[in-house]
Design a protein around this nucleic acid. Structure first.
Ligand SMILES: [Mn+2]
Ligand SMILES: [Mn+2]
Ligand SMILES: [Mn+2]
Ligand SMILES: [Mn+2]
Lengths: 218, 218
DNA sequence: TTATATTTTTAGACTTATCTAAAAATTCAT
DNA sequence: ATGAATTTTTAGATAAGTCTAAAAATATAA
């Protein structure tokens, strides 16, 4: 079944929203995530349901069907492979690639994406640490926890981000909190939710917002 | 001025048609080249004229304005650089890349295309021998002639094709008529317009159709 | 539990790009 | 130069994706 650029963005948004909240996805949350009006979302949900990509009952929110999930994962695979290409081959920074990948992900060719995968030497993760689905649509979820869920004394490697905004990524870069660095939890401040970590043999304070969005593999 | 995917295809088509016939471009020729109805073309011509990309007077055909020409050249630059990428880096064949480049050319980012250019080491020609405009939109037209315009005794290097169809490119590949090969005109047959050339130390007969579409640099 | 607030859907409209059918303009051929 | 053929434009429709405003359903809270 063919999908338009727009339909693909809806499917991907639904996929991500489902994995964020682990519940059926509401019209409003889609509307917010895609910056469109709720009325437009309703229209599109009807269409996606007709095409068999989502389970939709009025007022009940939506879930992806198997075919919808597959389509979403295909697009995510393309998005993340293009991001790797942009960073590894064209020397873009990790905070510069999202919008471009947002467009490139809609180029429709299985051969192209598989050749790109090979050219990049079958990377396992994108520049933000997110796992790249393989050509069969298998996406292995990595065991990571946001810093604010770790206990004092826990140690691990910075392996991903929950928030992908330019501002956040640039902040991490500036403060040395980049992928691959080893950190250890020194203290957790109840008062403001901030966390003191040890990184590069030094102590560093991390705000609650950062602690919630920085993922650690233990 | 922003341009849609569709507008870009029209501008590129007008540019190519103008250079093929060296005259103002007719509604019907655009319609044929883009596989749309003439009525649709007329609608689009009005819009492109409003946006300042073409000079259009009813029933008179169109020409590109400077800004239209610039836009067209930008798209051609992107198209050809992506083709080089697909062939050189992803190991596509020269007859497989056109349709993909047709989509990739609409990805809208000057930084991306300049970084791609650099990554590819600033190629001068695409896989079909066509020249690649530089980042300032300068396109140097190469001095080439189709085989059927050469005289007996003339020699040169296969440097381009006028026809870009998969079938033609595959045929050239199969018969060894690839870019970079040296050829010499041995005889021209009036009867059917075919040409006998010397290539690889052997004589080879070339039909009129091939002779018209294979470009030689002398 | 009933009123209020929030969410979601419907109704109707707009834009872009397309189409068919018919009218108008231009070109061609005698 | 005039009638016929061809090309181009207009008129009116359609489909995709979006919007605003209003109605309907659901959730929340006194
Ligand atoms: Mn996208
Ligand atoms: Mn990413
Ligand atoms: Mn195109
Ligand atoms: Mn080419």
């Amino acid at each position: 079944m063919i999908t338009s650029y727009t339909e693909e963005n809806y499917l991907k948004a639904i996929y991500h929203l489902h994995h964020e909240k682990n519940a059926s996805v509401s019209t409003n949350s889609i509307s917010e995530s895609l910056q469109t009006r709720a009325a437009s979302v309703t229209d599109m949900l009807k269409k996606l349901a007709d095409k068999g990509f989502i389970n939709y009952a009025k007022y009940q929110g939506v879930t992806l069907t198997d075919s919808g999930k597959q389509k979403a994962i295909e697009i995510i695979r393309k998005h993340r492979l293009w991001e790797v290409f942009l960073v590894e081959k064209l020397n873009f920074k990790w905070d510069e690639v999202h919008d471009l990948a947002e467009e490139l992900e809609h180029i429709n060719s299985e051969i192209l994406i598989n050749k790109l995968d090979e050219f990049l030497d079958f990377p396992k993760n994108d520049p933000h640490g997110d796992p790249i689905p393989d050509k069969n649509g298998v996406l292995k979820s990595q065991e990571v926890l946001p810093i604010h869920k770790l206990q004092i004394g826990d140690a691990g490697i910075i392996s991903g981000v929950k928030e992908h905004s330019k501002g956040f990524l640039q902040y991490l870069e500036k403060t040395g909190l980049t992928l691959g660095e080893t950190i250890k939890i020194v203290d957790k401040i109840d008062f403001d939710g901030s966390v003191i970590i040890n990184i590069h043999q030094k102590e560093q304070n991390i705000s609650r917002e950062v602690a919630k969005n920085l993922l650690i593999a233990i």
